[in-house]
Amino acid sequence: MTDVAEMERVLTEFARQFNDSAELPRMAQGWNRTILVRATDAAWTRGLRVQEGAVRLLGAAEHPARAEIVLEGAADTLAAIFRGEMSPTEPYLDGSLIVRSTEADMMKLDVFTLMVWGE
């Protein structure tokens, strides 16, 4: 099972890929959101902050009580999504990924996740 240290590495790499993309920082302009990633089968939650087109991993002490987007699922599923090994659409549609957000935010996050990892 993906532990918290591994998930931090995954999210850090995701943020790096996002920030290095030619398109994504432009696409995310004005979309300032906190995303909490919560494993339902492990005792960890980690957060990302998207601010003015850049993504960074939040320290544990920075986690807000509430976030605009909360993703909940098995630790390995969450890691697979942020590694680009699994599309978020599939676990979302079969119920193994719970997305707590507006539909508009969910759509944007889906686009950005797919864009990070390419074809």
């Binding site: 432009r26 696409m27 995310a28 302009q29 759509m107 944007k108 889906d110 797919l114 990892w117 074809e119």
Partner: peptide, 25 residues
């Protein structure tokens, strides 16, 4: 469609983005 402020201006970029998104979307 997604509310993302990103105008696409060439067919090549449209195709590139569609290859990343369309299958899942």
């Amino acid at each position: 469609t997604a509310g993302i402020p990103y105008p696409i201006t060439t067919l090549a970029e449209l195709q590139k983005i569609s290859r990343r998104l369309a299958k899942e979307m």
